[in-house]
Computed example of a mutant assay.
Amino acid sequence: MTANSRCSVAEPPGLETQRREIESLLRESELQAGDSWYVVDHRWFEQWKEFVESGNQNSSSFPGQIDNAELFEDLDSYHLKERLVEDEDFVLVPAEAWHKLLVWYGTVEGQPALERKVVDLPSTLKVEVYPVEVFLCLHSNMENIITAQFSRTDSINTIQAAMCRAFSVPPGSECRLWMKSSDSCCERLRNVHMSVLDSCLSSGMTVIMETRNADGTWPSSRPQIMRNSVEDQDSYRGQPGVCGLTNLGNTCFMNSALQCLSNIPPLTEYFLQSSYLEELNFTNPLGMKGEIAEAYADVIKQMWSGRHYSVVPRVFKVNKV
């Protein structure tokens, strides 16, 4: 049954039964993390209470279909008005109570159900009336921006999956996300298992997704190359793994070690298949939060792309070692 279905309205029980069932659910339902509650217009709910308390099926206080129009900024986007106040502008009802009211009265056609999740925030459980609303776009097309809402308890991985669906990213593509605030400062969302709340992602921010290039590089950080032109490098096709490493000044031993490690098949396959991502340790206060592993993976994926004569392991050297 859809939230705004009108054809599913059933003959409601008697007014006293309605009142008793809904009041019992409101009284006995407790907030549990992950449960759904629904936002209902306060005026409509008060009129319904007046109707069922009247005991008269023909009362002029009959509320009609559930109508949340007063809660929306407009009836095109159905965007919730800001700073709505509970018990003044709206009431919260548990899912079971909502579905009963929906079956008995239906909703105004086209209006979405205002389902909200109970979230376990520091020191409190609450219904998240206002989820985090962010802008989403691809690094390759930052003009095409969509808006989406996520719970503060959703993981960054949930956002990534939603973006892959929304932008039709090919399955198997390796992606990474950045969050951008209004001051144009970008920060990597490195730990995809972290929650929206813990990642400090807030409403109004932009989440940018980039996908790894075929040559193993990232669009936002294409490395220096050992040719006279980018076009020469892009057209090159060689044997994967047969790739030089540029000496950055006293890095011959580092480069030699990287070449040796690159030619250990199980280890290289581990990084080429991105298996390492599931084992990054973001919690060790003495660790590097996976940065060295990611930098090494970038070098390996470039070397084994078959599209470079030589790559410059600058990020691995300067920032990680």
Results as ranks from 00 to 15, higher is better:
39 V>I: 15
70 E>N: 15
94 P>W: 04
99 H>T: 04
94 P>I: 11
41 D>S: 15
56 N>R: 10
90 F>C: 03
63 P>T: 08
49 K>V: 11
63 P>Q: 06
80 L>Y: 00
70 E>C: 14
60 S>D: 14
85 V>K: 04
39 V>T: 12
43 R>L: 12
104 W>Y: 12
94 P>C: 08
97 A>K: 08
48 W>S: 02
104 W>G: 02
43 R>H: 10
57 Q>D: 14
49 K>C: 11
80 L>R: 04
63 P>V: 07
62 F>N: 12
56 N>G: 00
77 S>C: 08
82 E>P: 01
39 V>P: 02
50 E>A: 14
47 Q>W: 03
89 D>V: 03
94 P>F: 02
58 N>Q: 13
65 Q>G: 07
52 V>S: 00
50 E>T: 13
39 V>F: 10
75 L>V: 12
43 R>E: 11
77 S>R: 14
73 E>C: 10
96 E>Q: 14
74 D>V: 09
82 E>C: 07
76 D>H: 13
50 E>S: 13
38 Y>Q: 01
103 V>N: 04
59 S>F: 00
85 V>G: 00
45 F>I: 06
81 K>D: 05
58 N>S: 13
95 A>N: 10
55 G>P: 05
80 L>N: 02
43 R>Y: 08
45 F>T: 03
54 S>P: 05
51 F>C: 05
93 V>L: 11
58 N>Y: 11
